[in-house]
């Protein structure tokens, strides 16, 4: 073929390079160790992915946990569990009348103390059972007789009661969680305290058997 003189010359034959360095001999055990390390790192990366929080978990409050009488301190308030009781009915004595709350189950009555760090707050509670069920304070007892209606202020502790209506078999292993009510446009990362009631099966059964027939509060 008649090739016109091209733009590119044929590759010049390369001059003999510097004498090739003798290849470092890597012992077999080091190769194996390297492969193992790589495998461990890859497995670790895969494992860490399973720990990524779901969107639901990212919305969860920041929880401080403890047991009976533990002072649980958050950025907004501090709280402690003071007493746990059971009752078959609750009588709320008001100024002019008396309300009677009854249940086919049992009332769990939790006395909480709380103080605020900077500003007055009202704290709502819910009870989380060992199985993960979440109970709101019962509406059979007027909220005005409970801690939910009281203002918790800086400088001193204030105590109050929360009433839960629960099946007797759900009491063991439960905990009470306190937080400021979550509002639509408020802070997304609200703190909460979680106090373990310290009830195992036997203790819960014994306490429920000894439950008061009528628990009286004023409100």
């Amino acid at each position: 073929m008649a090739t016109p003189p091209g733009l590119v010359p044929d590759a010049p034959p390369l001059p003999p390079g510097p004498p090739e360095a003798p290849r470092r001999h890597v012992p077999a055990w080091r190769r194996a160790a390297g492969a193992l390390l790589g495998l461990v790192l890859a497995a670790g990366a895969v494992y860490v992915q399973t720990r990524v929080l779901t969107a639901d978990q990212l919305d969860d409050p920041l929880t401080v946990s403890g047991g009976m009488h533990d002072e649980l301190e958050t950025d907004l308030f501090s709280a402690r569990l003071e007493r746990v009781e059971f009752a078959r009915s609750v009588r709320v004595k008001k100024q002019f009348s008396t309300d009677e709350a009854t249940t086919e189950h049992v009332f769990l009555i939790v006395k909480m103390g709380a103080t605020s760090r900077r500003k007055p707050v009202q704290l709502t509670a819910h009870l989380i059972t060992a199985g993960g069920l979440s109970f709101d304070p019962t509406d059979r007892v007027d909220a005005r007789a409970t801690m939910a209606d009281k203002w918790v202020q800086p400088g001193w502790w204030r105590s109050g009661l929360y009433f839960f209506e629960i099946p007797p078999d759900k009491a063991a292993g439960s905990r009470v969680v306190l937080s400021e009510p979550k509002t639509l446009f408020g802070d997304a990362f609200i703190p909460e305290t979680s106090s373990d009631l310290g009830l195992d099966e036997a203790k819960a059964r014994q306490m429920i058997d000894a439950a008061k027939d009528v628990y009286e509060v004023s409100g």
């Binding site: 090739t3 091209g6 733009l7 590119v8 010049p12 390369l14 001059p15």
Partner: peptide, 19 residues
């Protein structure tokens, strides 16, 4: 094909260490 027939300019490799 001789390289000279290429229409695409191929960079010339200088006398670097042998690839």
């Amino acid at each position: 094909e001789p390289r000279a027939t290429s229409t695409v300019p191929i960079p010339v490799i200088a006398d670097r260490p042998l690839p």
